[in-house]
Amino acid sequence: MQQFRMLAGLLLVATAVANEARAEVYKCSLPGGGSEYRDQPCSPGKGGAIQIKGGAAASAGGGLSGDWCEYAVSIDENSEKDATSAAQWTFNGNQVKYKLKAAPMAGPWMPLKRVEGGFAVDHALFGGAGRTWRIVRQSGGTMLVKGPLGGYYHFRRGAC
């Protein structure tokens, strides 16, 4: 049954690529493990949209290249946003650089580990390599990320 789901998911992705579809494809976690691909959003916390670029599907963690502005943080997905300390994140392959907007210089490049549905930054300030930043949703030029120690981080593509 799982092989059938995987084949169906790959066919769905291939069809979307062949037709240059603009509709989103979602990769959802199944209760017994494994994944399912579909054209409807997953249940909350069970997966999200994947990007199709150059004929290959990438998990949400794969769409992190370039600059992202962390423009706000919040306690939960829909609570009031605190936008007082914007920060610039620059993702470059397997590295990330972080700079508070108010700081004079960016920090050093830090090792970045891409994991299913998110990423980990190998630095104690960001939870270390064993703590995952989960991408809750990523659409167009925005992204919502749940931090490894709690809280939600609101991003938009580009410089702050």
Rank of each mutant, 00 (worst) to 15 (best):
P108C: 04
A8E: 15
G9L: 09
L12Y: 06
Q2I: 13
Q2Y: 15
F119P: 01
Q3F: 14
K53Q: 15
G45P: 05
G107K: 06
A56T: 13
D67T: 12
N78E: 03
A8C: 11
S43M: 12
K53D: 11
P108V: 04
P148W: 00
G62M: 00
C28N: 07
R22E: 13
A49C: 05
Q40G: 09
K146G: 00
C69F: 01
Y37C: 10
I50W: 02
A83N: 04
F119I: 07
A129I: 09
Y26A: 00
E116A: 15
W109F: 12
G147Y: 00
F4L: 15
R131Y: 04
H154G: 05
H123N: 15
G128L: 02
A58N: 12
K113T: 14
E80V: 11
P148Y: 00
K146V: 02
A58G: 14
K146E: 08
W133M: 07
E20V: 09
R156H: 13
L100C: 10
Y153P: 03
K27R: 14
R137K: 11
Q88G: 03
G158D: 04
G61C: 03
L149N: 11
K46E: 13
N78A: 07
N94I: 03
E77S: 02
N94E: 07
G34A: 07
G54T: 10
D39N: 14
R38K: 13
Q88K: 03
V25E: 04
S85F: 10
S85N: 13
A14P: 02
K97G: 05
G32N: 15
L7Q: 12
Q51D: 15
V13A: 14
F91R: 01
V136Y: 08
C69W: 00
A106Y: 05
L12V: 10
G141I: 04
A16L: 08
G158N: 02
A87N: 07
Q2S: 13
A120G: 08
P31E: 07
Q2E: 14
P104V: 06
